[in-house]
Design a protein around this nucleic acid. Structure first.
Length: 280
DNA sequence: CTAGGATCCTGTCAGC
DNA sequence: TGCTGACAGGATCCTA
């Protein structure tokens, strides 16, 4: 799924196009993708888009909120005079919509907003303003890397005894990291993904937190995985990961730092890339 | 507390 | 060409 940088990119991009427009009508093409009562949000104005970890909170008039979680393959695509697409990068960014993977369509006062989701793990949920903090996912969410001090991060890790990769993926430890940025941050920090959290010292924890911030900041600057960098200038397909990923998806390639081979293993149930030489 | 697996679902790719 | 299994940028739930 889209991780924090992609969700933030969607938040910023979509804000330009849909804030101050009204939701005229909602079509739910897949029941499980939309949780709640349509009629509570139809006719409402879109006031603001916020983000909490990997979740979007679309604030509406009347004290209603649409919580969006893209999970693995969710996408938000606005089509008005212009198109803005973000989330899981695939050809849906360019295709005529709706298509087979369209789950929900929001008709706005101008343009349409499509929620596409190949695997149907994502969802949009109607909440009241006062229900947001009680919502299960939001309630468990830790601070984002920028809101947390190095000491705080170190203390959380000290209290646990799990593989550091599993800890970074745990949204109650730190919010926003997913499978890619976790591998990248560990690589930059020279830490093996299976290292137990309580065996890291304070300096290592500090470096890791800084690298987690750094790698996501850089990705946000590049616009995450949006339509802008999904296409190369000549119209051919491109992978935005090529721009900065040092280990993710690079099994068998040479490590930039030491020339060692990049390996792929399984940690916390996820495919995990790392350099056997520099990450001990 | 932990690890590990299954689960939700669709699609693609490698290997036979 | 067709089949099969593995795997996928997430999170939760279950069992041992």
């Amino acid at each position: 799924m889209p991780e924090l940088p992609e969700v933030e990119t969607i938040r910023r991009g979509l804000s330009k196009y849909i804030v101050r427009k009204k939701i005229r009508e909602i079509q739910v093409l897949c029941e499980k993708s939309f949780i709640g009562d349509l009629t509570e949000v139809e006719g409402r104005e879109i006031l603001e888009i916020q983000r909490r970890g990997k979740a979007l909170l679309i604030r509406l008039g009347g004290g209603k909120v649409l919580m969006v979680h893209l999970r693995m393959t969710g996408q938000m695509i606005y089509q008005g005079k212009e198109r803005f697409a973000g989330g899981h990068p695939n050809e849906n960014f360019l295709e005529e919509l709706p298509n087979k993977q369209t789950r929900v369509i929001f008709s706005l006062t101008e343009g349409k907003l499509f929620f596409n989701d190949q695997r149907k793990f994502g969802f949009i949920k109607v909440l009241g303003e006062d229900e947001v903090e009680e919502e299960a996912f939001i309630r468990k969410l830790a601070k984002e890397p920028w809101e947390m001090t190095e000491e705080e991060f170190f203390e959380v890790l000290q209290r646990k005894k799990v593989a550091i990769k599993a800890a970074l993926l745990d949204q109650s430890v730190v919010a926003g990291l997913g499978n890619i940025y976790t591998d990248e941050a560990l690589y930059l920090s020279g830490i093996h993904p299976k290292t137990l959290t309580d065996s890291l010292n304070q300096a290592q924890a500090g470096i890791l937190l800084k690298n987690a911030r750094g790698v996501m900041e850089k990705s946000i600057e590049l616009g995450g995985s949006t339509i802008r960098n999904y296409l190369n200038a000549d119209g051919t397909r491109g992978n935005y990961l090529d721009k900065f990923a040092k280990v993710y998806g690079r099994e068998g390639e040479k490590c930039e730092k030491c020339g060692g081979k990049i390996k792929k293993i399984r940690v916390a149930g996820r495919g995990t890339y790392f350099c056997e030489e520099c990450q001990r």
